[in-house]
Amino acid sequence: MIGCLLIHGFTGAPYEIEPLAEHIRNTTNWVIKTPTLPGHGKTLNLKGVSFSEWITAAEDELVELLESCERVYVVGFSMGGIIAGYLATKYPVYKLVLLSAAAYYINPKQLVTDVKEMLRDGFAKTLTENELFLRYKKKVLETPLRATIEFRKLVRFIRPQLKKINIPTLIVQGECDGIVPLKSAYYLYKEIGSVEKRICILPSAKHHVCYGEDQKKLFEEVDSFLHET
């Protein structure tokens, strides 16, 4: 039996990786887990939650999969990608997929482009239809400063561990990501210790790579990587 753990990002929920999770469910008989990290979900409750709790929650799910499956893959999105990388240094994960993994945070150039788009929609009085605006407004309003500090502490804690990753790794990055810059993918490629590693750049994808016009390409790349022997 094969198991696959998919870990969502900071201030997010399983919906962030659900299109990929659903694709894998529909095309395999694998055991799929998409846990919600502490304080996350449709309603955020991050006050007082430490980064170690996010790691522990993902770790517990991974241990369960390892106990019941002969082979386990881990997929992590954004902050979940950083956590996934850390887990791969501690447990016998077979393959690792990093989606928009947040080794660095905020892409100033793309963020300016996204803000201009929101302003244009604001003047056109269609801002309430702008998906980026709705998503980021919710996150800004519901995210305590302390939680953001915990996120940054998590990244600083895990970065030095990346060189210990020695399993096949696929790094996927959207070229139009306004949250995680392109240099994050190249940094991960340089730092990860595995001999077998590759980068896939999706030219039209924003931060949420599981959505948008490059979705088919994403699914193809992940399928090819996970199914090859």
Rank of each mutant, 00 (worst) to 15 (best):
P19T: 15
D223S: 09
I192P: 00
I179E: 06
L98Y: 02
G178R: 07
T28Q: 05
K109S: 11
Y94V: 09
V93E: 06
I167M: 02
F77T: 11
M118V: 10
L65G: 02
D121M: 11
T89Q: 10
C69W: 03
S184L: 03
F225E: 10
L99Q: 05
E61G: 05
L141W: 03
R146D: 15
F157W: 13
P35Y: 11
L6C: 09
H40I: 13
E228F: 05
L182V: 14
N45E: 12
E16W: 10
T143D: 04
N166W: 00
P181L: 10
V222Q: 07
V222Y: 03
R156W: 04
M79K: 12
G122P: 00
E117C: 06
V74E: 05
V31W: 05
L62W: 01
A84P: 08
E196N: 09
H8R: 09
K153D: 08
S194F: 01
T56A: 14
N130T: 08
A58C: 07
R198E: 14
I32K: 05
E191R: 05
C176Q: 15
L111N: 08
L87D: 09
T229M: 08
H208A: 15
Y104D: 13
K137F: 07
T143A: 05
E117Q: 13
R146Y: 02
A185R: 06
G9A: 10
L99Y: 03
G178I: 07
S184F: 03
K33M: 07
K153A: 10
Q173G: 02
L127C: 01
V75G: 02
E142F: 00
M118N: 02
T36R: 10
I32H: 06
G212S: 11
L96G: 00
C200R: 14
G39V: 13
L145E: 11
P160Q: 09
L119Q: 09
K42N: 15
V222S: 05
K206V: 14
C4P: 01
S100A: 15
V155F: 03
L96E: 02
K137R: 11
Y187Q: 04
I192F: 01
F157T: 14
L162A: 01
C210L: 12
K190L: 01
